[in-house]
Amino acid sequence: MEIQQSHYEFKSAPIEHQIVLMAENIRTPENMGMIMRLSEAFGVEKIYFVGEHAIDLTTKVKRASRNTYKTTNYEFLPEGEDKIKKLTDSGYQSIALEITYKSKPIQNFKADQYKKTVVIVGSERQGISEKLLQLCENHYHIPMFGNNSSINVVNALAIGLYKVTEKINKA
């Protein structure tokens, strides 16, 4: 008897949330592809890749995305400030996944009345720009237990999307 279930037999959980992702100044093709793959896995409705360093859909991006680039809704924007304002005006809460002076541990994220959330992640080098941080209602960080203060943007996004979808779907 086989124990492992095939990917074709597995049924995903129903989506009870509306999550939009904003990824600012992502430079690495593999990270861009993995962001698409993670977003698809967590039911993200749209990804906005913002900033001056937009990456084309190279072979590396496509390979890392495991073909989710074909089914993921995404858009490239030169800047994200106007989009954040439009999303929050239409009822989305905004959360920055970044270490800031006012950030709280991600496990303290509260969905409250919100089922609509925009999650913002930043570049591999500088994180989220000060302009976008100023527009975010809430800042959350991932507590670290080693000497390093950060992890790869894709790994951080995986943890962040897991916690956000967990809390929203329980609300």
Rank of each mutant, 00 (worst) to 15 (best):
E2V: 10
I3H: 13
I3D: 15
Q4G: 05
Q5W: 09
Q5D: 14
Y8Q: 15
Y8G: 14
A13H: 11
A13Q: 15
A13K: 09
H17R: 10
H17G: 00
N25G: 07
I26K: 03
P29N: 00
M34Q: 03
M34H: 07
M34Y: 03
I35C: 07
R37K: 09
L38M: 11
S39Q: 08
E40L: 02
A41S: 14
E45S: 11
Y48M: 04
Y48Q: 06
F49E: 00
V50H: 01
G51A: 08
G51P: 08
G51N: 07
H53T: 02
H53I: 00
A54K: 01
A54D: 02
D56Y: 07
K60L: 00
S65G: 09
S65I: 10
Y69K: 04
Y69N: 09
Y69Q: 03
Y69L: 04
K70D: 00
F76C: 13
F76G: 05
L77Y: 11
P78Y: 03
G80D: 11
I84L: 15
I84T: 10
K85V: 14
K86F: 09
K86H: 13
T88D: 11
G91T: 09
Y92L: 05
L97Y: 11
E98C: 09
S103M: 05
P105Y: 12
I106A: 03
N108Q: 15
N108F: 12
K110H: 06
A111Q: 11
Q113W: 12
K115Q: 04
K116P: 00
K116Y: 05
T117H: 06
V118I: 14
V118W: 07
G122I: 02
G122M: 00
S123E: 06
E124T: 10
G127L: 07
I128N: 08
E130N: 11
L135E: 15
C136D: 03
N138A: 10
I142E: 11
I142L: 14
I142G: 05
P143Q: 10
P143F: 01
M144S: 04
S150L: 00
S150P: 13
N152L: 00
V154S: 10
N155C: 02
L157V: 04
L157S: 03
A158E: 06
A158D: 02
A158H: 04
G160F: 01
L161Q: 08
K163F: 05
V164L: 02
T165D: 04
I168M: 08
K170H: 12
